[in-house]
Design a protein around this nucleic acid. Structure first.
Lengths: 206, 206
DNA sequence: CATCATCCGGACCAGCGGTCCAGTTCGGCT
DNA sequence: AGCCGAACTGGACCGCTGGTCCGGATGATG
């Protein structure tokens, strides 16, 4: 054993400088192109070309198209997730469950309004892909836990899935665009459904 | 002007016999193949081949892939739509609005369970395609009208969109398969949300 | 400065949805 | 009965896409 330098056990390889530079280039070019032409209107080769990079490099870095989309989303999703776990209330811990629920709803809406097209493309990459997403798993867990506090009688996990349904990217964007609903109106409507779902007791009862 | 025979103004052409025969063949072959290999795993050329028909014929008849899917769904969707407009209560007219709403929910679930994969493929054919579907327009109108009776205070059209969100084919099938929720449980859960949405008054009120 | 793992990039591939058109078949009219 | 135009047929063909491959270039290391 040589000197006592840190062995960097958890970081297999630091990643070469040119590789890092090219990854940045690709990410930037992809974001710009997607914003300009729409996610579906941009082939992988165009992304590579715009980034001044070969197609092989692009696929080596991100695996496949889906991987590129995930990488583009990574920042925003991680930010929301961090805010849920460690951020200040009412998004983070410390506020009453219902407030946290509504704060999360607004956070998710923000994400959809900001990066909706990319989220949609990611969720559409294969049938049923949404539920298999790491991001969705996190959101669902968060909602299920909070709901479990408010409605100990209910199947919180299943209910959380149903409440998250209108926030599927394709559904949300469809209602916003084809459906002609405004962001505030639609958010308020979903918030109301969440609030109604958050109280115990069957509808018909006194 | 020759004899006074009926000019058949509304029927441009009755469709030739071989054309009708081939259409039936294509529809049958497509249904069988889709059921066997999954909708996404079957290319248009395979359908043509299995039907004993040329690719050109297939596209001439149905326009494009989306058209074939719509044709496959046409029967089932029209049947539901007819039941809503002219069928016996509680699905058809004559029952109280809330009962009709729940009956419709069950009918739609039935359709999704029976032909879910095809509905999904049809709704996935392009981003936001679902809302532009004739079938969705009919369902939405139905729900909006009934909701309008129960909740004159609310924006029934918008609320109807939100209530229909869990029944987007991709969402429904995702929850049923990846989500591991049973048909009865999921239906009951959605029914409860609909019931909660059907009563006036804000959640926090006495 | 030598060495070698790593990375680069564009040629290449198979498969897809969709188009085209020369040949065939149908069915109403005489 | 038989003809003739319209409608139908089917497979070769096209452009494009996501994804693979490998000879050569380039960075880090001692």
């Amino acid at each position: 054993m040589p000197t006592g330098e840190l062995p960097l056990l958890d970081t297999p390889r630091p990643e070469r400088a040119d590789a890092a530079r090219n990854r940045r280039r690709v990410l930037d070019a992809a974001a710009a192109l997607f914003a300009e032409r729409g996610v579906d209107g941009v082939a992988m080769e165009k992304v590579a070309r715009a980034a001044g990079v070969g197609k092989g490099t692009l696929f080596r870095r991100f695996g496949d198209r889906q991987g590129l989309l995930v990488a583009l989303l990574d920042d925003a999703e991680r930010r929301l997730q961090d805010a849920l776990l460690r951020g200040p209330p009412p998004l983070g811990p410390g506020a009453p469950a219902e407030e946290r629920l509504l704060a999360f709803l607004h956070g998710l809406v923000e994400l959809l309004e900001e990066r909706g097209d990319i989220v949609r493309a990611s969720e559409r990459s294969s049938p049923g892909a949404r539920l298999r997403t790491a991001a969705y798993a996190g959101w669902h867990l968060h909602v299920a836990v909070l709901l479990g506090e408010l409605r100990p009688d209910a199947d919180a996990a299943a209910l959380a899935h149903v409440l998250l349904a209108p926030l599927a990217a394709d559904t949300w964007l469809g209602l916003r665009r084809e459906g002609g609903l405004g962001r505030a109106a639609l958010t308020a409507l979903v918030a109301e459904q969440w609030s109604r779902a958050a109280v115990s007791g069957t509808p018909g009862s006194p």
